[in-house]
Nucleic acid binder design. Structure first.
Lengths: 293, 293
DNA sequence: TGCGTCCATACCCGCAGAGTATCGACCGAG
DNA sequence: CTCGGTCGATACTCTGCGGGTATGGACGCA
């Protein structure tokens, strides 16, 4: 049983995601027959049936489901290998840091000067990516470091350092019926229009789509939406909105994450700067990292 | 920049490990010229110089060093994808568990009946592998679960559950000069012939090679060797050897490890059985998992 | 200077991967 | 029940790439 090629993994992932050979082939920029044959051959060599073909489409077998998840991981690892080597080969390697908009809770501007003072500092490039995209970028090697969020992000495969843990507040229009309460619980906000954050599963898709804090504040001020956000977002509050603590939302954490077994001095220095800022944090206290349960 | 194939990664790893195109080609079962071309092409497509060729051999550039480590990870991930899918496709999937000889500290025979009693139990196959091989087998998908050892093994990429933490004892011939001491420190054993464990870096290669506890006890009894081992090895002590605590050896832990994000009920059930046995352990106490620092 | 080592280049070949055309199974409409 | 539409599989062809052999060119050493 000789090796499976990444090309084959790519093919399989396409078919498994589309559940349709024709569409998958189109997505891959190839014709359908060679794709069918490639998958058949893959199954034959692996000795496992990955797909159940009916004449009306395709479904995944249990083994296929496992193979889909594992193939994605493997492809990420391959791309990561290439990207990391490419970046290591640059004459002036940069430290790439991923974060979603406002995902650093305002810490980055305090971390940067501390980091730059250190001896291992290199040029830092901040990649502001879509919500929930940070982990992916870390996994496939496009960035060295990311601001992630517990308990939202999947931290597996990463080493992490907790920067801060925070409570949540509701952002309300100044004249909202709840605006002068000193605290709320989630139930108080039942029926209020909640924003949809792109990338997040559209659980409570009652309101308009929101991409960053500025936009959010705008919409809140207009009475279009009411949002529950980490208290660090208070920094963006305008005069025409108010923030009221919400007591029964689990606290969330901001943490720095990087691939396990990383040996880069630049990454280590940045993390050190991050922790220095975190413990020195005047407003928000640091706490111990939650377990991985 | 289209995808890098696993074949290319295999080629590169071979060359990077051999630091010699000819030998690498022989190892890969191919001729040298196509290998040279393949690596050249890889470098051209990646836009990175991975190898420094002198007419007297090959050295790795910094980017090449990064790419070697990342390529190994990626290849492991690809093999893991195949193996896990193959095992998921079997009619009667087995739970594969890796351990080195005596690596379970005697826990396995107590875990098995507890596990089998549970509803999610499947057939268990124990793979007794070389020392230090367990983590590799877990990473490349040949096993679902492994007994690993802190602080010896690299736990990154795994979830773990601590089973027990133990002190160490010196195993001495019955009539050894130190045999009637109630405790020792490492310095007491300076100059004594220590066994070489295959797979471990041959740090103190003064003595003969030893593969398992039976062999060790034999050699100790013959006065060929003196060993410092975890106290669980006492189980194998014969009448003609004695075990004396060594006080200044850091305690070591036995833990169960499995790939992160595993969702297998069989794995979960085995881990649960493991922890039940661990907390019930009559002789050896459980302790909290040490940090990953 | 001549020889041995080692990687690169030149050139050739066969097969695997990709394309086109078509088949066969299934489903739903009428 | 038949016909058309939808899908995946099969048959056949061809081209490009991965791999082979022979050889060149750079370097170190005696």
């Amino acid at each position: 049983m000789d090796a499976v090629e990444t090309r084959e993994l790519t093919y399989f992932v396409a078919v498994a995601e589309e559940l349709h050979f024709g569409r998958a082939a189109r997505r891959l920029g190839m014709a359908q027959p060679p794709l069918s044959r490639a998958i058949q051959q893959l199954e034959r060599r692996m000795g496992v049936v990955l797909l159940e073909r009916t004449s009306r489409g395709v479904t995944l077998t249990p083994a296929g489901l496992v193979f889909l998840a594992e193939s994605r991981k493997a492809l990420d690892a391959v791309f990561a290998a290439v990207r990391r080597a490419q970046r290591a080969g640059q004459v002036a390697p940069r430290l790439m840091v991923a974060m979603k908009p406002d995902g650093d809770a305002g810490l980055l501007e305090r971390i940067m000067p501390v980091y730059r003072r250190g001896p291992d500092a290199v040029e830092v490039e901040v990649v502001v990516c879509g919500i929930g995209e940070q982990a992916r970028m870390l996994r496939d090697g496009r960035v060295d470091l990311a601001f992630l969020h517990a308990p939202h992000d999947d931290l597996s495969g990463f080493d992490t350092e907790l920067l801060l843990t925070q409570d949540h507040v509701a952002v309300l229009p100044r004249h909202h019926r709840l605006a002068d309460r000193s605290a709320l619980v989630r139930a108080d906000l039942d029926g209020e229009p909640a924003p949809r954050w792109p990338g997040l599963s559209p659980e409570e898709a009652s309101g308009p789509e929101v991409r960053d804090c500025g936009q959010l504040m705008q919409l809140v001020a207009l009475g279009q939406v009411v949002a529950v956000v980490p208290e660090s977002v208070r920094r963006h509050a305008r005069a025409d909105v108010v923030c009221v603590p919400v007591l029964d939302v689990p606290r969330s954490s901001v943490l720095l994450a990087w691939p396990e077994r990383t040996r880069s001095r630049a990454v280590a220095a940045f993390v050190r700067a991050g922790t220095e800022v975190a413990v020195a944090g005047p407003v928000l206290e640091a706490a111990r990292l939650p377990g991985r349960g």
